[in-house]
């Protein structure tokens, strides 16, 4: 495979990876991010005829790294631009109460997780991250039934703890 063909294959894999992970608000930068990832890979790997192709898993890992860096960079930029009048106006419209309440719930949630038995805590963390029970079992080296029990009981503990802290859904 020629150098150009290898580069084109890498680009295609990166494009597919970026389509899967790019949030809506970064869509306009997606092509640039593919290019950044491409450059990062070319810095590390010399594409020459006869060399083994770069592994897809490595390309996906690079796409992940480039995307999370960009998400953080844009967030930091937005935070530092809070002096901007439009940003202040937006923040006022969102309402300080909502922001404060959301933050308080988040702090309480993390405190409750900190109190939980470690096995249940791990199950609940992965459940909150969006993993299914078989996924949780696989990630933690558990049987499916064990994962199911720990998530079920952990979530019950978490709800009770949040109620004790005064956070009750209406």
């Amino acid at each position: 495979m020629t150098e150009n063909e290898q580069a084109e294959q890498i680009r295609q894999v990166l494009q597919r990876a970026m389509v899967r992970i790019c949030p809506d608000w970064l869509q306009s930068s997606r092509d640039d991010l593919v290019q950044n990832a491409m450059l990062k890979i070319l810095e590390m790997h010399k594409l020459t005829e006869g060399n083994p192709p770069v592994q897809s898993s490595y390309l996906y890992k690079t796409a992940h790294s480039v995307m999370i860096d960009e998400i953080r960079r844009v967030r930091r930029r937005d935070e530092s631009a809070l002096d901007d009048s439009q940003a202040v106006e937006d923040a006022n419209q969102a309402g300080p109460y909502r922001t404060t309440l959301g933050h308080k719930i988040s702090v309480a949630l993390r405190e409750c997780l900190g109190r939980m038995v470690e096995l249940r805590r791990m199950g609940v963390i992965l459940h909150l991250q969006g993993h299914t029970v078989p996924d949780i079992a696989r990630l933690l080296g558990w049987k499916t039934k064990q994962a199911d029990n720990n998530v079920y009981r952990g979530m019950a503990n978490l709800r009770n703890c949040m109620q004790e802290k005064g956070f009750e859904s209406t």
Partner: peptide, 20 residues
Amino acid sequence: ILHLARCSDSAESWRLAMEL
């Protein structure tokens, strides 16, 4: 995984990797 409960940045990085 236990660290994710103490660091939302890492939790977000994890969720992004889940998509891949």
